[in-house]
Amino acid sequence: MNTVLILLSDSFADWEAAYICPELNKLEDYEIKTVSLTKDPVATMGGLKVIPDYDISNIPNDINIKLLIIPGGLSWHNTDYDKYCDIIKYCLENNILTAAICNGVTFLANHGFLDNRRHTGNTVEYLKQNAPEYKGETEYVDSQSFIFENLITANGSAAVEFSRDILQKLDIYSQKEIDEWFKIFKIGYL
């Protein structure tokens, strides 16, 4: 079973993973699991309550992590989330697809994960202002969503592009299917 882990933060942006989750959840060999600091319910920006599958200290060792998703949100500046750095480092170092969007990217920037990796985000100025430890300005790419090796980064207005890029990297649909999917969610049935 391929496991998709989603790192949750208080007031996370629920829509930023909303396009990709149904596509992966309908596949027989994928499961989606959520991770938080504790097993207490986490409220999204939209007011939904999510009960995490795992707390950060109890992720099972025997799962096959295929994808790590880091959605944006309003509380990534909280230093308690520094506990997520080990799983992020593990995924990046073991060629596990890692996908961050909006302030999820800002969190990566502030913890040095983007210093030597091409990436995008909410703007380079935003990253410099909101991630005081950010040193990756020369690696910044002005793009809605950007793929660099096993890392996908996106700005907060690019949930559909972010999901498209995840589908491309996972190689579970043909390019034609991905293009049709993208057209439906980006343009509609016109």
Rank of each mutant, 00 (worst) to 15 (best):
M1H: 15
N2T: 08
N2P: 10
N2E: 13
N2C: 11
I6F: 02
I6Y: 04
F12M: 00
D14C: 06
W15Q: 06
Y19K: 07
I20V: 15
I20L: 04
P22K: 01
E28P: 07
Y30S: 08
Y30D: 04
E31Q: 15
E31K: 06
K33T: 07
D40M: 08
D40A: 11
P41N: 12
A43E: 13
T44E: 02
M45P: 09
M45E: 07
M45Y: 11
G47E: 07
G47Y: 13
L48C: 09
I51C: 10
P52V: 11
Y54M: 09
D55L: 00
I56C: 06
I56H: 01
N58R: 08
N58Q: 10
N58V: 00
I59C: 03
P60W: 11
I63G: 05
N64P: 12
N64K: 15
I65E: 02
I69L: 15
G72L: 03
G72R: 05
G73A: 01
L74D: 15
L74E: 15
N78D: 13
D80Y: 06
Y84W: 03
C85L: 11
I87V: 06
I88T: 08
K89W: 03
Y90M: 14
C91P: 02
L92S: 07
L92T: 02
L97Q: 02
T98M: 04
A99W: 07
A100R: 04
I101Q: 04
C102A: 13
G104R: 02
V105H: 15
T106D: 01
N110W: 02
H111Q: 05
H111N: 09
D115V: 10
D115K: 14
R117Q: 01
G121D: 04
N122H: 05
T123N: 11
T123A: 13
T123Q: 12
T123H: 10
L127D: 05
K135N: 14
G136E: 04
Y140R: 05
V141H: 14
D142V: 15
E149G: 09
T153S: 12
N155V: 01
V160A: 07
V160H: 04
D165G: 08
I166A: 03
K169Y: 02
D171G: 14
D171F: 11
I172C: 09
Y173L: 12
S174F: 01
Q175T: 10
E177G: 11
D179E: 13
W181P: 04
F182Q: 01
I184T: 13
I184N: 12
I187T: 09
L190R: 15
L190C: 09
